[in-house]
Design a protein around this nucleic acid. Sequence first.
DNA 1: TCCCTACGTCAATGCCGTTGACATACTCTG
DNA 2: CAGAGTATGTCAACGGCATTGACGTAGGGA
Lengths: 235, 235
Amino acid sequence: MTERVVPEPERKRRRPTKQGVVLSAELIVDTALRLVGLHGAEALTVRRLGAALGADPSAVYRYFHSTDDLLIAIADELIGRAQHGWRPTGDWRADLRAIGLRIHAAYQAHPQAALLAAHRTTGRANEITAVENILGILRNAGFPDPEAVRIYHAFVDQSLGFAVLDAAALALPSAALSADYQVWQASYARLDATTHPHIAATAHLLTADMNRSAYPHALDLLLDAAEARLGRSGG
Amino acid sequence: MTERVVPEPERKRRRPTKQGVVLSAELIVDTALRLVGLHGAEALTVRRLGAALGADPSAVYRYFHSTDDLLIAIADELIGRAQHGWRPTGDWRADLRAIGLRIHAAYQAHPQAALLAAHRTTGRANEITAVENILGILRNAGFPDPEAVRIYHAFVDQSLGFAVLDAAALALPSAALSADYQVWQASYARLDATTHPHIAATAHLLTADMNRSAYPHALDLLLDAAEARLGRSGG
DNA sequence: TCCCTACGTCAATGCCGTTGACATACTCTG
DNA sequence: CAGAGTATGTCAACGGCATTGACGTAGGGA
């Protein structure tokens, strides 16, 4: 077999499909994101993707080695969107907070795709840019390199971890979605105070809080702690 | 159709399969965990599960409505294992740290299953116990209820979020696993210092740190920040 | 001992990803 | 502008997947 996939920058011949569509890796990624946004994660199949593109399903394999390969491309696209238009302000804490919220938001905008992609390391251009930016903020803030790297790691994984969990909540098929809320209302809100005193005492607060993402709060806690350490060591 | 699934506590007739195995929900969950541990997440199919059990695949549907239903049961089982044998010491910070590490460890012990299950809310017995325990620790420590609930939420979601990410790293098929490491070695370790100064300056630290979980560090940061707030408001 | 039905089994349906062979239309060379 | 070479779209086929309806049998209750 001559290699089935030709790297995008080397592509010369762009031959339209029977239905007149000119394919590209970018078009396929965008279509996949749209498909998944419209019909859920379970709609992301090669066959449906082909139909949505207006091409034979197997044409996808001329651009990606496998569905997993496509997923990596989707992941990098989401990271790219998170950074689009971002500029540093010079205030390390505000910058880090903004990047964290942007990453989280970019994945929440495509929860079904986030669920599939957020835990993948892409090693591609957009990911590398993000790493460079975040490390730069921390080092310029005055964190010594070992500390900068450790905080970078915790910060990024925290962002992505919350992105996965919160995406999961959004991505549940609407039937299961309301079921998930019912779980809290039904199972937790009416537990007996003698067997579960702490849940019973805070049930009203819990049901309110579980409907929101805990990420902004968790992010602030992380930044609080980082700032305290900077004050201790650096300043 | 008479309902296909009979709730476990009401089961009376335990009829062995052709191969002489007596099925139960518990046996199926354990077998699924073993299967997934031995052969990866992609081995968790109803057909293989049937084979591993010594039963017709469709027998599983006498115990679970769907594979998703089975997944919820697996998730609750993992939460249960995380708490098995745990006892509070009275030191809120040590207790919370221990629970966080236990949750993380329980999922890391079954990374393939964790990847499938960690983002699901089960609403089942083991999950409820965990919620009650964590809330109790925070309220007894002196956190006011609204703060206790907010920290609880951030703490739990952070634990599960890192569990997912770290499970993903462990669960990659070994081919992709080394590939993931290669990504760091190849893509990051040799980036040009003029285009990516911060990555280049910390490459040696990065490659060392990315091989570990950032969870313990992130957990300590969260506990630091919580403790600081407690000192400010409560004491 | 007989009835009832829970539960294991079987077979069928319509999906899925992936691949090898094929055909065609694009680009490149002269 | 003609012909060659091949990139890329298409087709058909494979084996595997979850799920379900029908069936029969064995276990428990009377």
